[in-house]
């Protein structure tokens, strides 16, 4: 048995649909007879083809939201559809800035719970069952909804493989965005794009991450340099983000990004359980830490018990000389 209809909150940038959106559309096809997308942005026509290629037959488009943050208007638009009688069985969103904001506002508007941080979804009879890893990924908890839908689900990036279904372009249906009154007061006055060399942490085939073992914030440069040499992305443990060495966008872990690169190099990271859940899906893990008992060595494919201040410069030098 399958569900009737699933809506996927689609995200896109510069006319390109996000990887996680495509992953969610792919999974949704497995679980429901009808898959539709909801999209906030003025270019729904431009992405309708991609959305359809991955299984969405329709995209509900709010149109350009101008300088509003998406959480309030998108949740308002979805709630209006639901309250008007057009309700899906479930709404899937990525655990992204937008996904969490929309899910939070929608949850309050519809008085519905949200199941978060899920890495798998299945349908058992007519029940949607989610899987969430807890305790550093050592334990998987399966949960289902007990109250009426629509059921709101947040899914971590890279939980599923994205596969096209070869469908035609999704039909674009414009939806109304109700006046949000007081809730809609926040306005974006400027958007800063940080010039970044190399791949993003989400997409990089190689991630070099640094932790407290680096000692001081200056030493993070070695991580950046190594990442650049390997054409990868730099990442960080929560400890050094908390210490203000690097911004939250670098954080890998339970609270932060989940990455699954071909190679993950953990330098000066002990392997706290909450960090490991963010990277234990990496294909190959290399760890460098001066503590032989560090938990990271229990999941590394190649472990080096040594001083990062010695090993990293040597490694960087060797790679430069190739």
């Amino acid at each position: 048995m399958a569900l009737n209809t699933i809506w996927v909150l689609a995200e896109a940038s510069d006319g390109k649909v996000s990887g996680t959106t495509l992953e969610l559309l792919t999974k949704a096809r497995e679980l429901a007879g009808t898959v539709e997308a909801v999209y906030a942005g003025g270019d729904a026509d431009a992405i309708a083809g991609q959305l359809g290629e991955y299984g969405a037959t329709k995209v509900y488009a709010t149109g350009d939201l101008g300088n509003a943050l998406p959480g309030v208007p998108v949740a308002g638009a979805i709630a209006a559809l639901v309250e008007g009688g057009n309700a899906p069985d479930a709404i899937l969103a990525a655990t992204s800035y937008t996904g969490r904001d929309v899910a939070g506002r929608l949850s309050a508007k519809l008085d519905r719970t949200v199941l978060t941080n899920n890495v798998d979804l299945e349908v058992d009879g007519d029940k949607l069952v989610t899987t969430e890893p807890v305790f550093g990924g050592t334990t998987n908890v399966k949960t289902t909804f007990t109250a009426a839908g629509p059921h709101i689900v947040l899914v971590r990036p890279k939980s599923f493989a994205a596969e096209p279904s070869g469908g035609g372009a999704a039909a674009v249906e414009t939806i109304a965005v109700p006046d949000a009154g007081r809730s809609g007061g926040a306005v974006v006055t400027n958007r800063h794009v940080e010039e970044r060399e190399g791949p993003s942490l989400d997409d990089a085939a190689i991630v070099v991450a640094g932790g407290r073992g680096l000692g001081e914030s200056d030493k993070y440069e070695m991580v950046e340099e190594l990442a650049k040499l390997l054409k990868g992305a730099p990442g960080a443990s929560r400890a050094i983000v908390d210490a203000g060495w690097v911004p939250y966008s670098y954080q890998v872990g339970q609270t932060g990004k989940v990455v699954k690169p071909t190679v993950y190099i953990a330098a000066g990271i002990s392997g706290a359980t909450q960090h490991m859940v963010g990277m234990k899906g990496s294909k190959n893990i290399i760890a460098i830490n001066k503590d032989a008992e560090a938990p990271i060595f229990s999941i590394s494919d190649l472990g080096i018990v040594g001083d990062v201040h010695k090993v990293l410069p040597q490694l960087i030098e060797a790679l430069k000389n190739r």
Binding site: T139, N140, V141, S300
Partner: peptide, 18 residues
């Protein structure tokens, strides 16, 4: 509005050489 269906140990990842 939710209930836990099951709790399972996740398969452990095997470590390589140190």
């Amino acid at each position: 509005g939710q209930e836990i269906v099951s709790i399972e140990e996740a398969p452990a990842r095997e470590a390589g050489e140190v």
